[in-house]
Design a protein around this nucleic acid. Sequence first.
DNA 1: CGGGATGTTGAGCA
DNA 2: GTGCTCAACATCCC
Length: 277
Amino acid sequence: MPELPEVETVRRGLDGLVSGQKITALRIDYNRMIKSDLTTFKNNLINQTIHEVNRRGKYLLFELGEQTLISHLRMEGKWLSYLSTDIPDNKHFHGFFDLSNGQTLVYQDVRKFGTMELVRTDKLADFFADKRIGPEPTETDFNLRTFQHQLSGSQKKIKPYLLDQSLVAGLGNIYVDEVLWLAKIHPSEIARHLSAKKVAELRGAVIHILEKAVKYGGSTIRSYKNALGLDGTMQDYLQVYGKTGQPCARCGTPIEKYKLAGRGTHFCPKCQKLKKV
DNA sequence: CGGGATGTTGAGCA
DNA sequence: GTGCTCAACATCCC
């Protein structure tokens, strides 16, 4: 469940549940999801107080003071909360964090792609710089001039470029298709073929779509159980993702789907035309 | 049953 | 640097 709006929705739910709570015990049943040293991870987390839960791009940040627990949900990671004495059996529960208020924070991940690691808080900026995570998709952080400069110098196709997180943080496969539909840009368009005006519209669409999705609590698509904070309704407002064959809301042309850089890609063949080369 | 697809990312290779 | 394929893993849907 992991694009920025879903992660932000989880963050808000978690923050209220765990802020001020101390981790009194923890158990990890799937060691490979811990990217930093496992022994250090356990030793350094125990007895730590979670001051707040923040977010950067699609990463959740549990602020512990000197250290920060970074959690990435990847495809199917979820955080759940149970009374410590009442945790159901589930073969996809991989991490258990007992809190001082009698609750246990449980990490569930069907596909086991999600990751956790503990980093020194003063190294957080380096962590995201190393991963080339771009600015947050906000009016203040997401600079138009920088964006235009990056696109004007690139031969990359716009959708895969937007997905690599370096231009702007937080877009995933659902919202990138929505953004390109809104901005009327073909997903395979070459970045430097976009006019300055188009790039400005694209930036506006990124900010608008992600803000709207956060407002509606993200999208709940293939999620079965409603994980923490995942009762989103943004799926009711999607225009192209999962709408193959249905009429475009703007022009009525059936939405098409093709594969681009390994990802299912939805677009309107009339509204989103490739530029003639 | 076989094959393909799924809200992600990073490694390996031409 | 860039672009592609695959891999991590489990489940669902033809």
